[in-house]
Design a binder for these strands. Structure first.
Lengths: 329, 329
DNA sequence: TAGCCAATGATATACGAATGTCATTGGCGG
DNA sequence: CCGCCAATGACATTCGTATATCATTGGCTA
């Protein structure tokens, strides 16, 4: 900035004013400053500015994973809204580990992020403590809960899984197996499992313990295929399998088709998440559609509103879900 | 930090030393400091630290898009490596606009990023000028070029498209159409187109002008389906269509199948990018596989090496590509 | 021509930490 | 008991910018 002021033949203070309170300097002085700025290629140091203003214009976001998942849509939704407001997104990938989430949150706080957006309601104790001491808005996403730390934007995983289960039951499937991701430290996964169990109980159906399964994280097509093979070779064969993640469901479908097992006649398959390709599979996937990008945009807007001083009219937003009934179940 | 020193009954300076040069303070003093730190929940302000040290430990990354694309894999690759080194990723989404890329780069520079990773070699003039004045490592990715600004990690789009085209020609297809994304400001897309044209010319095949097509950005399943419909209804029907993006290829496949057009007997389809589901489609997609996550990891490692002072042994890295010959062509 | 106001300049301070230069303290050995 | 050294403290300065306060300048109006 000093260089700019010299180049323009003005005092340092005038340059600062031209940038921060343009109305207090003459238009032609402003022009001189601007010309000097782009002759020199001066870019103000936002860190120094933040140090004084106590506002970093950065927002931290933690997602469990990005590859072939709706979390990429979510992140893009957040980034899009933030960019329009000249706010930078700090992105952390937790690999579904609450410890890595904690680490990401710690970094966000250390870097003076103005707000923090995390996935889910499950956090380590230290992470909770840090968030409690954090002074900006906090958004928990991808689920709903009455014990939110602050704001939340998500959908009801329990109800979504229960609805899909009821649909399957209504179609006459009786021996329904369920495959989740790893359940530990994942409220979304456990809520879906509980939703499934609840709907089964409500219909008076017992669930075989060996029909409650999970695939390791990160969930992959392959793990779904492998698990399906084992299920098909087991003593009792399910007539429907409800996958609570989309990739394993797709893998399972591939496994069945390659063994000549018909879907949904021999075994029905339902997924969760509705990746863009699910409708294009050999047997279009019956699944639960989640509008992830919309969720990201809402989370970002909620944060921006709060930062702009608006009282949050809607601290817990439910974005809902849709059952996409296609051919696989 | 002042609070910590009071809590621990030590001077501010000792706390600072305990954190930055632990060997200069007694172990038990260090412990006192540490205990005070987590009783208070003190988190050092990295912005202030950066201001002095002239190192932000942040690296800016621009991708064109995240949703259902390999760029999500790429971003995850970068993020993973950086997190292990306590470096924060700043992510910008350019929506394939060089202007938005410029804006993202400007922000990265203003925020004192230590390095910048961008997609492709096409940038606005101001963006180029800013990058030229930037003092840290710069990586251009997703393509190769001999006019790289600094470092690069990518693959040869021209050669990849040419190879696939040669494969199609070898299979006996003659009337081959090509569908790219929008070509303006996208060196990857134009290189692929040129690779296609070059291979066709080399085989002595003329390409009908109406067989050089493009779908608007962002590329979608739907746009591929629509375009395929128009192609099929045109005066001359191609016997193969080479899509240079994966989603439109998948949409095109869906459009064909729903109209009872057989793939590859009536028309062959080839894609580019190999999303994880491409192998699972009704007709598994013949496509070009790009190891995006690996590319991200390499880019990140290249940058880290440079920042650590290593001379870049390998300023332009070629990660290659694989033709994935499946059923659709 | 006195007086006023707008535009600009000068100076100091703050933000939170890093760091260099000395000064002080306490413990130990000789 | 003196002197030395290690550990700790005090103080000042720096990073790049914002901002509050006060001083100066010049042009315009009454």
């Amino acid at each position: 900035m000093r260089d700019v002021s010299e180049k323009a033949g003005l005092s340092l203070i005038t340059v600062s004013r031209a940038l921060r309170q343009p109305e207090t300097v003459q238009p032609d002085t402003r022009d001189k400053v601007m010309r000097a700025i782009d002759e020199i290629g001066y870019v103000p140091n936002l860190m120094a500015r933040s140090l004084v203003s106590n506002r970093s214009n950065m927002i931290g976001v933690v997602v469990p994973i990005l590859t072939s998942s709706l979390f990429a849509d979510f992140a893009q939704g957040v980034a899009g809204v933030l960019q329009r407001h000249n706010i930078q997104m700090l992105l952390g990938v937790s690999q579904r580990s609450t410890l890595q989430e904690e680490e990401a949150v710690r970094t966000f706080i250390a870097r003076q992020a103005d707000a923090i957006i995390v996935t889910g309601f499950t956090h380590t104790d230290t992470c909770r403590k840090m968030l409690a001491g954090f002074h900006g808005p906090i958004v928990e996403t991808w689920n709903l809960s009455d014990k939110a730390i602050d704001l939340s934007v998500g959908y009801n995983n329990f109800a979504a899984a229960a609805d899909m289960t009821r649909y399957l039951l209504g179609k006459g499937y009786r021996e329904i197996a369920m495959v989740g991701g790893a359940f530990e430290n994942n409220d979304q996964a456990t809520d879906r499992r509980d939703g499934f169990l609840s709907a089964m109980a409500e219909a008076g159906r017992k669930v075989r313990p060996e029909f409650i399964l999970s695939v390791p994280n990160p969930t992959t097509i392959q793990s779904g295929a492998d698990l399906m093979m084992r299920l098909l070779d087991g003593p009792v064969r399910p007539d429907a399998v409800f996958f609570q993640a989309e990739l394993p469901a797709q893998g399972a479908m591939m496994a069945c088709l390659s063994r000549g097992i018909r879907i949904p006649e021999d075994v029905a398959i339902a997924g969760f998440g509705d990746l863009s390709l699910s409708a294009l599979l050999p047997v279009p996937m019956t699944t639960v559609r989640i509008r992830a990008q919309d969720m990201g945009e809402r989370a970002a807007n909620l944060v921006l509103g709060r930062l702009a001083g608006k009282a949050s009219s809607n601290a817990g937003q439910d974005i809902g879900y849709d059952l996409k009934i296609r051919k696989s179940a």
